Computed example of a mutant assay.
Amino acid sequence: MSEARNPISGCPAVDALCDLIEQTDRDLDCRVVILTGAGTAFSTGGDINSMRPGHGLGEAQPARTRQNYRQGIQRLPLLFEIIEVPVIAAVNGAAVGAGCDLACMCDVRIASEQAKFAESFVKLVLVLVPGDGGAWLLPRVVGWSKASEMALTGDLLDATQALACGLVSKVVPADKLIEESRALAQRIAASPSHAVRMTKQLIRESRLSSLSVILEASAAAQSLCHTTADHDEAVNAFLEKRQPVFAGN
């Protein structure tokens, strides 16, 4: 996929990514996922060849195009919204169009100094709208004003600009990107996996729910945490003045 700069609009690419994410989410021994791109790009979004009239996403019949989106790329944001395993996007290069939105689906984004971001649907050769949920995702990452600016202009942001608007949490040299992403993954993985997964879900739910709803969900999650062996280990380790050893139980 690297020669094509990692397009994600085709069903085979979506199927492969969905299958991989679903497998890791089912594996409770998997503490965190790092998602990056092959070659020099994170993902340049849609495959332009699939958008020619009468081909792939650009079917001649609007009803068929609608189904292609629903059965194809729109499966990704729906899946990323319900998985429990934390996902780090290690953005190594261009993340434009659907590639930018894919990065926004992840929980944390770290960018190399070579990374570029654009919500570019309205310009270039596409002249489209965000068909993959970008209109929902991007405002929740960078805020309504910046999201509107990005989506309505299609302008390209460099890594420094992405950091300034909160699109990424860190910018690192290109040759340190995976190292830094793994270091973050290790810090996440060092915490009890059940608590991490439930904390992630509470953060996700908080974007749509009232405080009272989140408090109820937090109380329910907390009651489960109190029953885990990792909770007992944490308490005992604190009282015994030693480092805890979490087994994910």
Rank of each mutant, 00 (worst) to 15 (best):
209 S>H: 05
237 A>H: 06
57 L>V: 09
42 F>R: 09
108 V>A: 06
109 R>G: 06
114 Q>I: 03
193 S>Q: 11
43 S>Q: 12
198 M>R: 07
89 A>Q: 08
104 C>K: 00
174 A>I: 01
212 S>V: 14
40 T>V: 13
158 D>Q: 00
112 S>H: 03
121 F>C: 11
172 V>H: 03
2 S>H: 10
58 G>T: 11
100 C>T: 01
5 R>L: 15
124 L>A: 14
132 D>V: 02
137 L>W: 07
30 C>Q: 14
108 V>Y: 08
24 T>P: 00
54 G>P: 03
10 G>E: 11
76 L>D: 12
35 L>S: 07
102 L>G: 05
172 V>A: 08
69 Y>W: 14
65 T>M: 15
216 E>S: 07
106 C>M: 06
22 E>G: 00
18 C>Y: 04
94 A>E: 07
86 P>H: 06
146 K>W: 11
170 K>H: 14
145 S>E: 10
189 A>W: 02
210 S>R: 05
11 C>W: 08
44 T>R: 11
243 Q>R: 01
135 A>E: 14
191 S>T: 04
214 I>H: 01
170 K>Q: 15
129 V>R: 04
93 G>I: 05
11 C>V: 13
177 L>P: 08
47 D>S: 06
238 F>Y: 12
173 P>G: 09
70 R>W: 13
27 D>E: 09
75 R>V: 00
15 D>N: 11
80 F>W: 10
151 A>Q: 13
56 G>A: 13
40 T>L: 11
232 D>P: 00
3 E>N: 08
184 L>H: 09
199 T>P: 03
220 A>V: 07
25 D>G: 11
67 Q>A: 13
55 H>T: 12
15 D>S: 09
100 C>Y: 01
71 Q>L: 15
65 T>A: 15
84 E>V: 04
185 A>L: 07
95 A>L: 06
116 K>Y: 15
24 T>A: 14
77 P>W: 00
167 L>S: 03
246 F>H: 03
236 N>M: 09
81 E>G: 04
50 S>E: 15
221 A>V: 00
185 A>G: 15
239 L>H: 06
